[in-house]
Amino acid sequence: MSERLLEIQDLQVEYHTDDGIVTAVERLDLHLEKGQTLGLVGETGAGKTTTALSIMRLVPDPPGRIVAGAIRFHGEDLLRKRPEEIKRIRGNRISMIFQDPMTSLNPVLTVGFQIEEAVMLHQKLDRKAAGERARAMLELVGIPPERAGDYPHEFSGGMRQRVGIAMALSCNPELLIADEPTTALDVTIQAQVLELMKSLRERLATSMLLITHDLGVVAEVCDHVAIMYAGSIVEYADVHSLFTSPRHPYTRGLFGSIPSLDEEVERLKPITGLMPDPTALPSGCKFHPRCPQAQEVCRTRVPQAISVGDGHSAACLIYEGLVPGFQE
């Protein structure tokens, strides 16, 4: 039996800006089982980072505000916890890797010292033991432990990301949130980091929420995947179902947009139109202005997540029987 580690329900997050209220996350439902690696996929501005920051209770306020919803970790709502309680969870039981490792690394402190500090903050270890843990973590991610005394800028991009991983894993978290951990890296370095993450996940039995816009990375690393569009999850499935039978028109559009390496495709079939303005999201189904399947009803009716297979759901009126399906 799988155990539910994280469950997000009806989350709504807004940013109050000069241009108006940006609804970054809207009616978002998501869950993650223990031991699972869930990919959260979406294009720029979909709300992926905001979702991650909400789990960490790190949404910058102002301008951001979590307006509604619940984020249950082991059944307890993180949004109702007091700041001291959150501090004990953050970096300890839930930790995060950022796209740019420099966000989490202090440029004027050696990497060894920074990992030590993180360990001492959460675990009852003295400096000597924490130092040993720091060196062991560096070794685990393939960095010679004697480099513990080096500063972040003395490492290359790929190594810095591995330091970020070492730091995030130093307290052996139950949930690791990785926000585009390889997007800034070259593909051969990305391959190194992905291999590392896969092997560490197995060894340490960490559950993972992997944020990415790259469906290739998802196919490689994740067992489940959630597709996000304009603040909401439009499709959720295990990786196999999602890649073999994508059900949401947006997901299908994404697949049509990616150039293939192993097939000869003359022309891509892009999704038409542009991302909606986050201060004025479309009514009804937020994807309707770009959707080739859209009908009148899509303008007004908000689609619910409907089960379309075992553990596979899609939020599209096709599956509520209100819109004709795809013509194969």
């Binding site: 593909v187 992905l194 790259d214 196919a219 490689e220 890649f243 073999t244 697949f255 390496l261 192993d262």
Partner: peptide, 14 residues
């Protein structure tokens, strides 16, 4: 060869 092998392919079961 290394470059090709490093690219994550967005497919399963291939």
């Amino acid at each position: 060869q290394a470059l090709l092998s490093a690219i994550p392919i967005p497919k399963v079961g291939v």
